[in-house]
Write a protein that binds this DNA or RNA. Structure first.
Lengths: 191, 191
DNA sequence: ACCATATGAGACATCAACGTCTCATTCAGA
DNA sequence: TCTGAATGAGACGTTGATGTCTCATATGGT
């Protein structure tokens, strides 16, 4: 049966196209479908065969981003040991998907309430729980709300990814810059 | 002469339109010229009489943002006393313009090299100098580059403004949340 | 070598936003 | 009250991106 091979090739290609699209759209969020196709090295018609339209492409990117972020959350084992170390692990795991997440973070404002993927709420909750645990265990300061720390994590990951793309921050420093700034701000100050 | 009155009214109105446009575009960066006009309570034709086109509107917003940011930098007296306190003052002064700056920060990626206002470089340098001074005086940690701390300031101000718009952070907490997180991350840790 | 499928290139209609225009109305100052 | 400028509403034409279509070609499996 060619169905197995067909399906496999499709998903592989689909994956590759999505990666390329994410990389391009992270830099230029208004990139044309034609530009996306060229960047992926395929024709515009083929791009439309994979994704019904621009909306479908963005939604697929959103889905991919949710998957990657969720995988990062799983791999980071947020409930193990100190919250600081868990946060460090999370940032490390987020690194490969930073571009995609940065794009989705700024683009999410466009999903005007009508159709927000419920996946984000679940992921938000997991991150929020980590900060809350850190606060309850006396590791993090309590005057910064978990919701804000969560928001700050996204913002710093996104802006650091953007700074790396623009050459203002070295790629190898991504984890250190993001983690240290956020941890320094979140950690409780010993008196 | 009606010219004086005319000019005054125009600039006043222009200012008001720009404010409204900034508030709207910060939430929905793809807002139509028609939506911008409606939001400002004027007709689309009138909007075009004030600003030659969408480009001109964005450029005017950019100019306004640069002005406001520069004024904030001046009022914050970045060279006085401790760098920490100067940074706190800066964030306080940025508060009123946070929405506009948040919009411009995310929108700047669209100015693809061809026409970047040189004003930003000057402002970047002033902020960067503040962080550098803090490092040289032993107040800030030196493993985070001034360029990254500058970027982080923009990112945190922007995302906090956005969080306030969405009700995830209380408006009165803007300064505290932003300043404390950034300062905690920037400050040198006593051993 | 053959055939089915996927692909790339391009043509085409559609559509939304833009920019320009006109015209009736409103409003402020003389 | 009169007059001229500014405004709002709307009617255009234009443009750029989108989505759909066809057809020739390439590719991969048999």
């Amino acid at each position: 049966m060619s169905h197995m091979v067909y399906g496999c090739l499709m998903t592989m290609d689909r994956e590759r196209v999505l990666r390329t699209a994410a990389a391009l759209l992270a830099r230029k969020s208004t990139a044309t479908m034609d530009e996306v196709a060229r960047a992926a090295g395929i024709g515009r018609a083929t791009l439309h065969r994979h994704f019904a339209g621009r909306d479908a492409l963005i939604r697929a990117l959103e889905q991919l981003g949710i998957q990657e972020f969720e995988a990062a959350l799983d791999k980071a084992r947020l409930d193990d040991d100190a919250a600081s170390d868990a946060l460090r692990r999370l940032i490390t795991e987020m690194d490969p998907a930073a571009d995609l997440l940065a794009f989705l973070y700024t683009e999410n404002q466009l999903f005007e309430g009508d159709q927000i993927n419920e996946g984000w709420a679940r992921l938000d909750a997991r991150v929020c729980d980590l900060f809350r645990r850190g606060q309850q265990q006396g590791e993090f300061r309590i005057d910064l709300t978990p919701a804000w720390l969560t928001e700050a994590l996204y913002a710093l990951v996104g802006s650091c990814a953007w700074a790396v793309m623009d050459g203002r921050v070295a790629k190898k420093d991504f984890q250190h810059m993001t983690a240290e700034l956020l941890l320094g701000g979140a950690r409780r100050v010993e008196k």
